[in-house]
Design a protein around this nucleic acid. Structure first.
Lengths: 338, 338
DNA sequence: ATGAAAGCGCTAACAC
DNA sequence: GTGTTAGCGCTTTCAT
């Protein structure tokens, strides 16, 4: 395993009998070069397999061709699919992805932002459930273009890509209502803060009230996003003998937990109780019955965020700071027509 | 959003009234510096928030503190959990992760290796289902330390982290046998090549034969790794009325597909048929009954790979090129005692 | 113990 | 159109 010294611009220049600036002009197409000379340089480059050292280049241009991506959990399906979009689009623009994981911990977020800054990333995409004020301020201070992919932007004046949670929940609630359901339980995902949960709750309530029905607080539950959270919440709820003909969980995993709780207590889905989820992750097609859920354009959210970042890097004006992407309802097999 | 020019070593030197070499010595602790001077420099650094520019540093030291990670699919659970281990450990050693996705396509793999090389990564972790000879040669040629996390190394002389597939399959087959099962169907995951499938098949056959039972080729099936693959394969198999009292799928998703096929055809799990999987991804706890499966140390595989890379970068000898990590059987609820 | 100076590989004035 | 030169921010001899 011999490590050979890579060819540099000097080597190419010497071999082609030109100056290094000419070589630079050829590789960057930055200034006109006589065709004959250009060809000679190109030949040498091909022959030697020369690749410009991006470190040296970045040092002088101040451009690293690197974009930092901060995710709460690589293993989280939501993040992974968004990351997928980010990765693919950034490659199209010759950017590379510097990845950092935070476990949703503010300290780690801040630490990672510092690392990414030091590595000279040109922009940062921040995926997180909630957004901390300190983090926003810090990113703002750094002057690095930043786009958030967060479920709630709170009231910060930041660039953000998401879907409209309130109206998504409202639409799904209406969907259930239109299918004849009257007692729709809401398993509202909570994170550290209630801002997002509030938005969703509002959507839910609006739909119910507009239908002329009453809000039943006994079937509105705060509940974590995991399978177990959904399972336990529904188990408790059903055992307390409330009237429920549909369950809307604001996470697919919780919805599947809910389905399993129903099964275990002898309820049939969707005959006895309908269950719907949120996100349309791959889980939703793996359970039986297949889960009806709000489909969010995760890949596109990543793609859009990257395109925004690149615009910002280029100094192109962006009309809207907060982008809301369209969602749809994936109607599968877990909702009855009553 | 004012972009302020970052503090450089020069600024610090001037402010502290010393030369830039002294500052360099202080930040790298590379040569003795008088305590008093050191303190002065440290104060200025703190005051200005100076962070050394890693690009400039890398340019002279030839060390980028970057490790390239190539994955077949960010959204794949296996890759994501391995990536998790890689990310966490590399941060511990002050390395950052440059991420590239390949969709298991050789051309993209090669393209990405080139990009990573150009970005001066010090090492590459390559996660892939199968390993292409061209890729191996290319990586070898580049002289960049590389560790593979692949399910099969074929016969290449490469650094690889995995589990022993043959013995894992054999152990699980024995587990089923010991529980009294006699007709164990094998859903053997196939990728482009059969090398890995062969290893697994051998493990399966050895267990059966050593128990003095006969191999029944009618219940040995090649089958993709997805939910649908498992579902269809098992549906076909059960409809053809073969004798089966257990199904061993070499992927969790296929196993869950298998479970669903059983349900749909009226078989109870585990009473009528036991089902087991492979990997222990999060799916295995989300289905009912919970899936008994071979648990692989995915996080650790990433961690071990990174540690190997770092050793290689430091020029430390590595005793074994191929590391096999221990696996266990996660015994949950999908296997009967007969 | 400290400073001066060279140079990592490249781009971008500036000359000609 | 092409070459010369000055840096980018840093580490590392080499003097002192």
């Amino acid at each position: 395993m011999v490590v050979k010294r890579p060819t540099t611009i000097k080597d190419v220049a010497k071999k082609a009998g030109v100056s290094i600036s000419t070589v630079s002009r050829v590789i960057n197409d930055s200034k006109p070069v006589t065709n004959e000379v250009k060809q000679r340089v190109l030949d040498v480059i091909k022959e030697t397999g020369y690749v410009p050292n991006p470190l040296a280049r970045s040092l002088v241009t101040k451009r690293s061709q690197l974009i930092g991506v901060i995710v709460p959990e690589v293993t989280d399906t939501f993040s992974a699919e968004v990351l997928n979009g980010i990765e693919e689009i950034s490659k199209m623009y010759d950017y590379d992805i510097l990845l950092a994981n935070t476990y949703s911990e503010k300290d780690i977020e801040i630490k990672n932002i510092n690392i990414l800054r030091a590595k000279q990333v040109e922009g940062i995409v921040m995926i997180s459930w909630d957004i901390d004020k300190d983090v926003v301020d810090m990113l703002e201070d750094s002057g690095i273009p930043a786009v958030y992919i967060s479920k709630t932007t709170r009231d910060y004046d930041i660039y953000n890509v998401s879907i409209n949670n309130k109206s998504a929940v409202k639409d799904m609630t209406n969907f259930l209502l239109d299918r004849g359901h009257k007692n729709i339980a809401l398993l509202n995902t909570t994170y550290q803060i209630s801002n997002l949960a509030d938005e969703r709750l509002t959507g839910y309530k609006e739909a119910i009230v507009e239908k002329g029905l009453e809000i039943n607080v006994d079937i509105i539950k705060s509940c974590g996003p995991s399978f177990d959270d959904g399972y336990m919440t529904v188990k408790d709820m059903l055992e307390s003998k409330v009237d429920v003909d549909a369950i809307f969980a604001t996470s697919d995993e919780a919805a599947i937990g809910a389905m399993n709780a129903c099964f275990d207590l002898g309820y049939k889905i969707p005959e006895d109780i309908s269950v719907v989820g949120f996100y349309d992750t791959k889980f939703s097609k793996m359970c039986r019955p297949k889960l009806t859920t709000v489909k969010q354009p995760l890949y596109d959210m990543g793609a859009v965020a990257i395109r925004m970042i690149i615009k910002m890097i280029k100094g192109i004006e962006i009309d809207e700071k907060k982008v809301e992407l369209p969602y749809t309802i994936s109607d599968r097999d877990s909702v009855a027509r009553m």
